[in-house]
């Protein structure tokens, strides 16, 4: 007797459980189905559609023209609210001095913002030059590759940007950048780096560093447009990217880059 009731009870539990399962499954199924329908929400997000009508930005830095005045580094900090401490730079300038004995001396006091004091006497110098550094806006960028959540990405214009509301601050991208261009913003506590002044580009203004460069050592332009100043420059000069061996697809081209530079 007791057995039959318990069997009945089991039956009841089973059927109610089945019902619950059914509705749970429909609910889950519907949500999943819905998220598939919302094409943007598939498990693996679609590859980026390349919009040919948008520019594809590249940058040229002409080392022969740079006079190491530091205007760019200073303007960059002011334009992008980067703390004025000597540790955080979206762009900075290095002075390379190759001495007659073959050794290389590199300095970048406060990123070059206060200008440069010549540290090696003239008679010891084999050659010396300034190298402004900034994000290379790589097309195969290692920082995007390693970001676990998609908080850094290549914009349709080829500008590598950061999503400050989505970055989890794991710092993996900082490790992955071979150029040392990334840092953790000490106030916002997320990754930070050069955006090619994306907010200025969108308002048809030049990036702050290029606005203030007195000698026109920095240029940016549309690599898709074969008649742009930038493409012309690239055609007429022998340019080089930093660390070509790493195949980062850097879009920052240096004119007159010396082999000592890393």
């Amino acid at each position: 007797m007791s057995q039959s009731t318990s069997a009945m009870g089991n039956e009841k539990i089973k059927s109610s459980r089945r019902k619950f399962l059914k509705s749970a499954a429909t609910l889950a199924g519907a949500t999943i189905g819905y998220s598939w329908l919302k094409s943007s929400q598939v498990l693996l997000f679609a590859a980026e559609p390349k919009d040919e009508s948008l520019p594809w930005y590249g940058i040229v830095i002409d080392i022969e023209k740079c006079i190491g005045c530091g205007s760019c580094a200073k303007a960059c900090k002011k334009e992008n609210d980067v703390p004025i401490e000597p540790f955080f730079f979206r762009t900075w300038i290095e002075q390379y001095t190759v001495k007659n004995d073959g050794s290389v001396n590199i300095v970048s006091p406060n990123g070059g913002i206060d200008g440069f004091e010549q540290t090696v006497p003239d008679e010891d110098i084999f050659k010396s030059f300034f190298v402004p550094k900034m994000c290379n806006h790589c097309s195969k960028s290692p920082c995007i590759q390693v970001c676990p959540v998609g908080a850094t990405y290549d914009s349709p214009e080829g500008v590598v940007l950061i999503d400050e509301k989505y970055c989890i601050g794991c710092r993996y991208c900082v490790q992955a950048c071979p150029y040392g261009c990334r840092f953790i913003h000490p106030v916002k506590k997320v990754a930070n780096k050069c955006t090619l002044c994306y907010h200025r580009l969108k308002k048809n203004l030049t990036p702050a560093c290029m606005e203030v460069c007195p000698t026109g050592a920095r240029m940016y332009g549309n690599l898709r447009d074969k008649n742009s100043e930038l493409v012309k420059f690239l055609k007429e000069h022998t340019t080089q990217v930093l660390r070509p061996n790493l195949n980062t697809g850097a879009k920052l081209y240096y004119n007159a880059l010396s082999s000592e530079v890393r």
């Binding site: 334009e79 609210d81 990405y153 989505y166 955006t195 994306y198 969108k202 203004l205």
Partner: peptide, 18 residues
Amino acid sequence: GHYRGASLIDNAQPEIHY
């Protein structure tokens, strides 16, 4: 792509100083 599309707008937002 694999990012928040609205982030493009966020990045275009900041006030200019220059």
